[in-house]
Amino acid sequence: MYIHQLSEKHSVLHHFLSEIRDQSIQKDRMRFRRNIERIGEILTYEMSMSFSFSDKETITPLGKKGCVEISNKIVVCSILRAGLPLHQGIINYLDGADCSFISAYRCHTSETDFEIHVEYLASQDLDNKTLILADPMLATGQSILATFDALTKVGLPKEVHILSVIGARPGIAFLQKKLPKETHLWIGDIDAKLNEKGYIIPGLGDAGDLAFGEKLQK
């Protein structure tokens, strides 16, 4: 798996990352969602440089101009519900992409152990498409793997890109062993570890709860 960590270079991304981590700022739910969306835009811009492009001729009011356009057939799949603000940031830039949605959540069997349940999938045919998986928090990597396994039942993508805001090294190492070698991970920042419950440390908390409100625990 190819890892593209954008925080390795100084940019406005660091401003947004700082705000989504700050527990005083993240209380503003709308601002939290917007910052995730803006990070999604930055990640998408960087990812777009790896796409294929084709030539086209554009007619302006005063003449003709040779241009290029993305030639990839793109499907953006977001993991509900936390992935929705990140999804919006992606399609702000890739407005011609098809959109898929999948539910993947932790079902706890004990205080520290859990299984990933996938109960809903709405997707296009993925054969020979460019698949973009959007999940803001890459913790253990199990949700992304479960999502990928479910999606391969509706087609085999030509290439796979994962977009995440913050990840943990153990989860990334897990995905490196499980996903195709040509998979690309585009990520804002990477933290060193997980706690005993599988949450990123220092992370930022539960992205879904911060964006949309606390949920009942199963």
Rank of each mutant, 00 (worst) to 15 (best):
L131A: 06
Y93W: 14
V75S: 10
S110I: 05
T112W: 01
Q88M: 10
D113N: 13
P85H: 02
I132Y: 03
F101L: 06
D113W: 01
A122N: 13
H117S: 15
M137F: 11
K129A: 01
Y120M: 10
E111N: 12
R81G: 13
C99R: 03
N92W: 07
C77A: 12
V118Y: 05
I79T: 08
K73R: 15
K73G: 13
D135C: 08
A104V: 01
M137D: 11
E119I: 05
D135G: 04
K129R: 13
S78P: 09
G89A: 02
Y93T: 13
A97P: 04
S110F: 05
A82H: 05
L86I: 12
S110Y: 05
L131K: 04
Y120L: 11
N72R: 08
I116S: 07
H87K: 09
L86D: 11
I132S: 06
A122F: 09
C99S: 10
C99Q: 10
L86K: 10
P136W: 01
G83V: 08
E115D: 15
T112C: 09
H108K: 13
S71Y: 10
L121Y: 03
D135Y: 07
C107D: 14
L133M: 12
P136K: 02
H87S: 13
L94V: 02
R81D: 13
L80Y: 07
F114L: 04
F114I: 03
S100N: 04
M137I: 08
L84Y: 11
H87L: 14
V118K: 08
